[in-house]
Amino acid sequence: MTDLFTAEKIAFFVFAVPLVASAIGVVVARSPMYAAMSLVAAFFFMAGVYVLLSAHLIAVLQILVYAGAVMVLFLFVIMLLSLGDERPELERLKQMQWLGFVLGGGGLMALLAWISREVAGAQMATVGPDFGTVKAVGRVLFTQYLLPFEATSLLLTVAIVGAVVVAKERI
């Protein structure tokens, strides 16, 4: 029973419970602004879970890129468009939406059941202190994943040019 309440497991729940709560907040929020704020909170808690997985570099990137850059972009657009709250009668009209809701929920339940059955008792590998650091991940990125890494820079360039072309009224 003492095994159930080690510091790491308590830390997991400290991050996981608010993470799920703020993720639900994204979906139930009426105003897009509240949804965006919930998502920022969810990203912060997610970074905490990443640290528990010894993914230090990815946790920092999560804060910098997601909670920083991407969410600021979202907030800019929300404020630029000055959208009102969603009207509930327009929001949930289609039967297809409820069908999708049921199918999505059913698929999720099947996935949860499968995970509880198949992955139970899987042990974590013991890793050294440099697992997931900038050095370790950088070495993999620049050796084994060099081509995808370079392709990512090309992708980001294409995305910048594409965003400008699409969003600008007149070039």
């Binding site: 095994d3 080690t6 790491e8 497991k9 997991f12 996981a16 993470l19 799920v20 993720a23 639900i24 994204v26 979906v27 879970v49 528990l52 997985l53 999505g104 929920g105 698929g107 999720l108 996935l111 949860l112 995970i115 509880s116 992955v119 139970a120 008792g121 899987a122 042990q123 974590m124």
Partner: peptide, 18 residues
């Protein structure tokens, strides 16, 4: 004493479902 893999996968599945 580490958090089992299963818990992370369940958390990920719940988030994906949401």
């Amino acid at each position: 004493s580490t958090v089992p893999l299963q818990w992370y996968l369940l958390l990920a599945a719940i988030l994906f479902g949401i």
